[in-house]
Amino acid sequence: MVVPLHHIIAIASLLFSIGVLGVLFRRNAIIVFMSIEIMLNAVNLAFVAFSNYHGNVHGQVFVFFTMTLAAAEVAVGLAIIISLFRNLQTSDITEIHNLKN
């Protein structure tokens, strides 16, 4: 059975929206990063679906790059969270507000 393109795109946009809402409303920095990962995975799904639809591999190649960069980004992000946690003993982003006028 072939799953039609618009079904996959619907799922991808749903996943993407879940990720966006997670970034906007969750308070823990690690959960925020997880939500960003959900967004990126939605993008990957859409890329693979479009790639399959067009019958070429360009989109699937893009997915490899997205995954690699997402991993690099999270590695840096987690390092920053650890360093912040050492100094402030919290990973709640609403409590981190020393920078202001």
């Binding site: 993407f16 966006v20 990063f33 993008v43 992000g77 402030l88 981190i96 920078l99």
Partner: peptide, 25 residues
């Protein structure tokens, strides 16, 4: 302050590049 600034930078940066990536899709 430096820690905090980089955390904010990562979150905004990753979020907006995620949205851009969806546009590229």
């Amino acid at each position: 302050l430096s820690n905090e600034s980089s955390l904010k930078y990562v979150i905004y940066g990753a979020f907006s590049s995620g949205i851009m990536l969806y546009g590229l899709t």
